[in-house]
């Protein structure tokens, strides 16, 4: 069983270089390829010098932070249900049994680069660049239909 739901609107910011500004937002710096949260603000460590901050409302960035907003350029879906890994296996080459809640990474789904973030035991956040999102959604939908049939 797995449901596909569009992601709610989120503000997204890419912080580069120095993670210190995360502290000003109340966020701990997570280890590489892990997420951390402070209330409704999440940070994903996607690279050694790259952190993505996701929040419903714009956080109060301190001055001087090398932050670039990318919110409007991203879109995606939530996968909810125990069969989400099986659905993802249709197009994602990672071994998702070694992908616990809180893990995040860039990877692929079929032809599209995605940001994959496991938010819970049975809840996955899958996003991509805005213009690739329709293709991603259609690919997932077709795969899901065959999975559940």
């Amino acid at each position: 069983m797995v449901e596909i739901v569009p992601l709610p609107p989120l503000r997204r910011y890419v912080l580069r270089g120095d993670p210190a500004p995360l502290g000003a937002l109340g966020l701990k710096v997570p280890p590489l390829l892990q997420a951390a949260a402070a209330g409704a603000v999440h940070v994903l460590a996607l690279g050694p010098d790259e952190w993505w901050v996701m929040a419903e409302a714009p956080p109060a960035w301190p001055g001087g932070a090398w932050v670039t907003e990318v919110s409007a350029g991203r879109a995606g879906v939530s996968l909810a249900g125990p069969d989400a890994p099986l659905l993802l296996a249709e197009g994602c080459p990672l071994d998702l049994t070694h992908f616990p809640a809180g893990a995040c990474t860039r990877t692929l789904f079929g032809k599209v680069e995605i940001l994959l973030w496991r938010r819970g035991e049975a809840l996955w956040h899958v996003e991509t660049a805005r213009s690739f999102a329709p293709h991603l959604a259609a690919h997932l939908a077709e795969a899901r239909a065959d999975l559940l049939a």
Binding site: D49, S71, A72, R74
Partner: peptide, 8 residues
């Protein structure tokens, strides 16, 4: 550092 903002 480089960040793609093409779609933003």
């Amino acid at each position: 550092w480089l960040t793609s903002t093409t779609e933003h």
